[in-house]
Design a binder for these strands. Structure first.
Lengths: 231, 231
DNA sequence: CCTACCGATCGGTAGG
DNA sequence: CCTACCGATCGGTAGG
C-alpha cells in the first residue's frame, strides 16, 4: 500500500530461474527489514525526537550500514511519514476490531464510549505503541501534503466517536459543546503518552474509569429503570 | 502584562561615566538582545521544533551573525532551557496575579477553577505564548538535570490547583480519582496548543466554558440555598 | 557582538 | 543491501 519501495529488479531475471524477485539468495528477510526499520525508527523518533535521530542511528539499530535505509525509504522524511501512516492504519484496524462486538450486541452510548476510550489507551500506551505518539508529537516535521493525507486517516479514526458523543450530549450525559468536548477529550487521552508509565501507577482500565468519570455527567436522576452501577 | 521586552536602556545616560560593566560603547541593546534571542528562539522552536531549528536561524531572526548567540548562551541546549524556564516563571507569575483577587474575595472552588483554567488558556494560547508550548513539546531535548529543575517549577504551578480539585472532589463535583483527573485535565488543556487557532473558532472564554462543563458534574440537586446559575 | 574558521555529523547517492 | 564517498550544514570557538 505504499508508493515507495517497489520490489527491486522487477523483471531482471539474472541467475535465478523464476523465483519472486529477491536481491540476493538469502530469503530470511524479504520485506521484513523494512518493517524492522519502521519499528526502530518509531522507537527512536519517539524517544529522541525526529530531529535528534539520525538515519545512522536507525540503521545501526537494525544492524545495517549507514546508507542502507535509503534502499527502503527514499528520505528520512519518508520514513517518518511511513511510521505515522502505519500507526494510523493500525489504529483504525484495531478500533474496528474493538467495536465489532459492540455493534452486534447493541450497546448503549456509554458502553461504546468506554470501548473507544479503552481502545484508544491501548493504541497509545499498550506494548509496542510508539507509532501513534510519533504521529502526535512530530507533526511539525512532515510536509503539508503529508499532513493532509494523515488528516484524512484521522478523520476516519474519529468517525465512530461522533455519533456516540452526539447521543451522550442529547441524553444530557455530556454537557459541553460537542465539538469542543471532543477536542478536549482527545487532548486528555493523548497527553497520557507524556506521563503514563506502564510499570507503575494506574492500569489502563483504571485510566479508562477515570476518564469516563471525568467526562460524563451522572445519568439523569429520574430516568427509566435500567441504571448501571459503576465501580 | 508580559515579562518580556523590558524598556531598553534603563538609566544608561549616553557616554555614562561609571556605569555597570558593559562590553562595548553602544548602549542601544543591554540585556535586550538576549531577550530578543529568547523570543525568536521560542517562536522558531515552536514552529519548527528544536532539532529543525539551527542557531543560525535564530541569529538571523534577530539580525546577528551566526556565532553571536553563543555570546549570550553557552550552547543551543542552554538557549532551549532558558526559553522553558522563562516560560514557567512567567506562567507562575501570571497565575499568582490571576488568583490574587480570588483570594481576597473568597470565591468558591468552582470559580477558582474557572480562573485557573482561563489563565492557563491565556498562558498557552494568548498573544506571544510560545514559551510554554516549547516547554511542553520539547521536553525530550533537555537533560535530566534540567528536567528535574523544570519539574520543580511545574510543581509550583500546579500547587494552587490541588486544593481546588480536592474541594471539588469532596463536594461531589469532580467524580474521578483526583490525581488522574488532574493529569487528564491538564492534557485536555495543554493539547489545545496543537489545534487552537486564535483567528477562528471559539474564544478563550468559550473554551473555558466548555472545559468547565466537561469536567464538573452539576451541583448536587438537593444542596443548600446559594446555587450559582451557569450559562 | 563580528570575523573567520574548524571538526564533526548528517542526509543522501553511485555503483555494484 | 554494502562500500565508499560527497557536499552541505551545523554547533561551537578564538581572537579581537
Amino acid at each position: 500500500m505504499d508508493t515507495r519501495a517497489s520490489p527491486p529488479t522487477p523483471q531482471s531475471a539474472a541467475k535465478r530461474p523464476r523465483g519472486r524477485p529477491r536481491k540476493t539468495a538469502q530469503d530470511r528477510d524479504d520485506g521484513n527489514r523494512r518493517q524492522q526499520l519502521l519499528n526502530c525508527a518509531a522507537k527512536l523518533f519517539r524517544r529522541k525526537g525526529f530531529g535528534a535521530t539520525s538515519t545512522r542511528d536507525i540503521a545501526a539499530a537494525v544492524g545495517m550500514q549507514s546508507g542502507s535505509p535509503f534502499y527502503h525509504f527514499k528520505s528520512k522524511g519518508a520514513l517518518l511519514y511511513a511510521v505515522m501512516e502505519e500507526g494510523m492504519r493500525s489504529a483504525i484496524a484495531r478500533q474496528q476490531q474493538a467495536l465489532r462486538p459492540a455493534d452486534a450486541s447493541g450497546l448503549d452510548s456509554e458502553s461504546r464510549l468506554r470501548i473507544l476510550i479503552r481502545d484508544h489507551f491501548d493504541v497509545l500506551l499498550g506494548p509496542g505503541s510508539d507509532f501513534i505518539p510519533v504521529m502526535l508529537y512530530e507533526a511539525r516535521s512532515i510536509t503539508p501534503r503529508q499532513r493532509a493525507a494523515l488528516a484524512e486517516l484521522q478523520g476516519e479514526y474519529e468517525g465512530p466517536w461522533i455519533p456516540v458523543l452526539d447521543a451522550l450530549h442529547a441524553g444530557g450525559r455530556l454537557k459541553a459543546d460537542v465539538k469542543l468536548a471532543r477536542l478536549l477529550m482527545f487532548g486528555a487521552l493523548n497527553w497520557s503518552a507524556q506521563w503514563y508509565d506502564r510499570r507503575k501507577g494506574a492500569t489502563l482500565d483504571e485510566l479508562t474509569d477515570a476518564a469516563m468519570a471525568l467526562f460524563l455527567a451522572a445519568p439523569a436522576a429520574a430516568a427509566k429503570g435500567a441504571a448501571a452501577s459503576a465501580g
